[in-house]
Design a binder for these strands. Structure first.
Lengths: 221, 221
DNA sequence: TGATCCATGTCAGCAAGGTGTCAGGTCGTT
DNA sequence: AACGACCTGACACCTTGCTGACATGGATCA
C-alpha cells in the first residue's frame, strides 16, 4: 500500500518512514503544504499521514481542499498542538483520526491500520467487470473464479482500469499510472501490454475507443 | 478540449503548446493582456493558462475582469514572482491554481488536469436530445439505448452540439471546437462530417439552419 | 559462474478505420 | 431561373492500434 507522509521535521520523518517500510508500506515523503496538496490531489494513495505544523500551506487547509475536490483517502493527522478544539477542527476538515505528538511509533502504526481498515469497509477491495474479478487485497485477478497469474505491469494495468471502469481512460493517463511518468511516445509498449492482458483475460474486458483510449465496461448486472 | 494559453515568452509558449497538443488539447496562444482579455471574454475555453508578467494589461487584472463578467472557466496562473502574497492575490482574483516558474511540463499537465476535473465535477455527464443520449464518461453515444460507434471527430461534433443543444451553432463555431482552427473555408469537411453523423444517428438529431448553422433541439419532454 | 526463465521493451508489418477532397446533386431563396 | 448553401457517394491517403518475433536484462539456482 502506498502512503503519503507529510512531515517537515526530518528526524521524525525518517523514523516514521523506517517503521512504515518495515511494516510493508510504500512511502512517499513531502515536506511542505503546497507539495502535499498537489501530490494528494493528483496521485492515488492508500492513506495519508499529515502533520499540521507545516511551511507553505497549513495542513488543515490542505485537507479541506482535498475533500472539496472529492478525494476520499483516509487521513491521519499529527500535531503538537493537542487541544480538544484542534481535534474537532481536524475531524470537521475530514480527517479520519488524530494523533498528538509526541507519540510512540507503534501507536501510529495501529491507528494507521485502523483507518485503512475502516476506509476499506466503505470501498470494497474487490471489484469486477463481466467475468473478471480483481481482489486488491490479495492482488489477484480471476476469470470466473479461476485465478490468473499476472506480471506486475499487467496487474497494475488491470487494477487501474478496473478501478476506473465505466470511464474512458486515455493512453496518456495509463502511461502515467502504470509506468511512472512515461512520455516516450515513440513506443508502443502500452499497446503490447494491453495485448498481453487481453490474451490472458479474454478479448472482451478492455474495449478500444480508437483515438481516445480504453474502456472497461461497468457491468450492468 | 480547447485551451487558451496567455504567455509572452515565445520559447516557453512553444514548449507548452507542444506538450498540450501531444496531450490532446487544442491550444490557442496570445501574447498580451488586451488580447487575452478579449479572447477569454468572447470565446469558450475549457481552461486558461495565464502568465502574470504580460505587456498590455496585467494578468491579474485580466482575470478579475473575466470573473467580474461572470466567466467561470478554470484558470491556471503562471508566474516568476512566486511569493506567498502573490499567490494569495491570485487565488483571491479567482484563479483555480497557481504554478511558479520555472516548472516541469509534467507538473503543468497534472495541475491542468486537476483544475479541469474539478470544474467538470459541476457539470452532469449525460445529456440527451430526442432518442439520442450522450454519456461523456464513457464517451458513448446511444440511440434508444443502443450504443453507436463514433469516430473521434464525430464524437467531438456530437458532444459539442449536445452540450449546446437548444441553440443555433454556427459552422465557424463548430470548426473552432471540433477542429482547432477556424479559417480553412475552401473545404466542406464539416459538412461531410455532419452527413456521416446523420447517417449513424438518424436525420432528425441535427437540424440545418440555412445560412446560420446547425441546431440540436432541446427535447420538450 | 553460467544456464535458464520470466518480464518487458522494440520493431516491422499488417489490417482496419478515419478523414479530406472532389464532383456532382439537391434544395431553398430571391 | 439563377445563385448559393448544403448534401452525398466515391476514392485515396494516412493514422491508429494489433500482432508475432526477437532482444535485453534482471533474478534465481545449480
Amino acid at each position: 500500500m502506498r502512503v503519503l507522509l507529510v512531515e517537515d521535521d526530518r528526524r521524525i520523518a525518517s523514523d516514521v518512514v523506517r517503521a512504515l517500510e518495515a511494516a510493508g508500506y510504500v512511502v512517499e515523503t513531502v515536506r511542505d503544504g503546497e507539495e502535499a496538496w498537489f501530490r494528494g490531489d493528483t496521485e492515488d494513495y492508500g492513506a495519508v499521514i499529515l502533520d499540521l505544523g507545516l511551511p507553505g500551506m497549513d495542513g488543515l487547509a490542505v485537507l479541506k481542499r482535498w475533500r472539496a475536490n472529492g478525494r476520499q483517502m483516509p487521513v491521519l493527522i499529527l500535531t503538537a498542538r493537542a487541544s480538544w478544539a484542534e481535534r474537532v477542527d481536524g475531524i470537521d476538515a475530514g480527517a479520519d483520526d488524530y494523533l498528538p505528538k509526541p507519540f510512540r511509533i507503534e501507536e501510529l502504526l495501529a491507528r494507521l491500520r485502523s483507518i485503512v481498515r475502516r476506509s476499506a469497509g466503505h470501498a470494497s477491495s474487490v471489484v469486477s467487470s463481466g467475468e473478471i474479478t480483481l481482489d486488491e487485497r490479495q492482488m489477484r485477478v480471476s476469470v470466473r473464479g479461476v485465478p490468473i497469474a499476472m506480471s506486475p505491469l499487467e496487474y497494475r494495468l488491470v487494477a487501474y482500469l478496473l478501478r476506473h471502469r465505466g470511464r474512458v481512460v486515455s493512453q496518456h493517463e495509463l502511461d502515467e499510472n502504470v509506468y511512472g511518468h512515461g512520455e516516450d511516445h515513440d513506443s508502443n509498449a502500452l499497446e503490447v501490454l494491453i495485448g498481453r492482458v487481453r490474451k490472458k483475460l479474454g478479448p472482451d474486458l478492455i474495449e478500444t475507443r480508437r483515438g481516445f483510449g480504453y474502456l472497461v465496461p461497468e457491468t450492468p448486472a
